[in-house]
């Protein structure tokens, strides 16, 4: 019987390329968050004065904007799949979302079976995509818009920029929360996760995986 996982069997959650892209996204985002914070939060402003943080912020911005391009370049199918998935929800997803509080509190049993991404992850990714777009556009306006826009325009851009970041940061907190609760870090660092746990959270996806290496490995 193959439906049941062995404790020594692991499934490939993330291959090297998405992991690298994630690392790029994470590092650039944290750079932007921290440098941005020094610009906005007075206890940190001595760090920012002088312009170093400002310039690091520009560097972070370039890396951040490069993330989708890099992803498309190194793993086009995965990138497209991620985007497609994030904006497509089936009946199970909706049911899942109705019971999201249970998942939030650590319960997977009884939740509808989920694909590679559960509905929460889809929503998260969709939010990241949308607010990354708004933060990039508003950021570019602030960076290059001087002289073209009046004070009002620049202020609106700044407000959009900061509210976008606020939402992205809240999303990040949720992201870290679920990573912690569901021990998900290993998947993003090493790539493989125990099959049993994968089956618990993403049954439909595990079912769809080819039953061979590298998607499925035995570890002793």
């Amino acid at each position: 019987m193959t439906t049941n996982a062995s404790p020594t069997r692991k499934v490939l959650r993330y291959s090297v390329k998405p992991r690298l892209v994630h690392a790029l996204l994470a590092s650039s985002f944290l750079t932007l968050l921290l440098t941005g914070l020094t610009l906005l939060w007075s206890p940190l402003s001595p760090l920012a004065a002088g312009g170093l943080m400002r310039h690091l912020h520009y560097v972070g911005a370039v890396l951040f904007m490069a993330v989708p391009i890099v992803y498309l370049m190194v793993d086009r199918p995965a990138a497209k799949e991620l985007l497609w998935d994030s904006f497509h929800y089936d009946r199970d997803d909706w049911t899942w979302l109705k019971h999201v509080y249970a998942y939030f509190l650590g319960h997977c049993e009884g939740m509808p079976p989920q694909g590679r991404l559960n509905a929460g992850q889809k929503l998260h990714h969709a939010g990241v995509v949308i607010f990354s777009a708004s933060i990039v556009i508003s950021g570019l306006v602030m960076w290059f818009g001087k002289g073209m826009l009046n004070a009002n325009g620049l202020a609106v851009a700044a407000i959009i920029h900061n509210l976008s970041m606020l939402i992205l940061t809240v999303l990040l907190i949720g992201h870290l929360y679920f990573t912690f609760v569901y021990d998900a870090l290993a998947g993003m660092v090493q790539g493989y996760i125990p099959e049993a746990e994968a089956r618990l959270e993403h049954a439909k996806w595990v079912e769809s995986l080819p039953q061979k290496e590298p998607w499925l490995v035995e570890e002793n």
Binding site: P7, F104, L105, G106, H107, C108, E109, Y177, F180, V181, Y182, D183, A196, E197, L200
Partner: peptide
């Protein structure tokens, strides 16, 4: 929530095993 949720998850995983 993390304290509660992680405990719940651990229990579920243990149960699974």
């Amino acid at each position: 929530a993390a304290i509660i949720a992680r405990r719940n998850h651990k229990q579920e995983v243990a149960h699974l095993h």
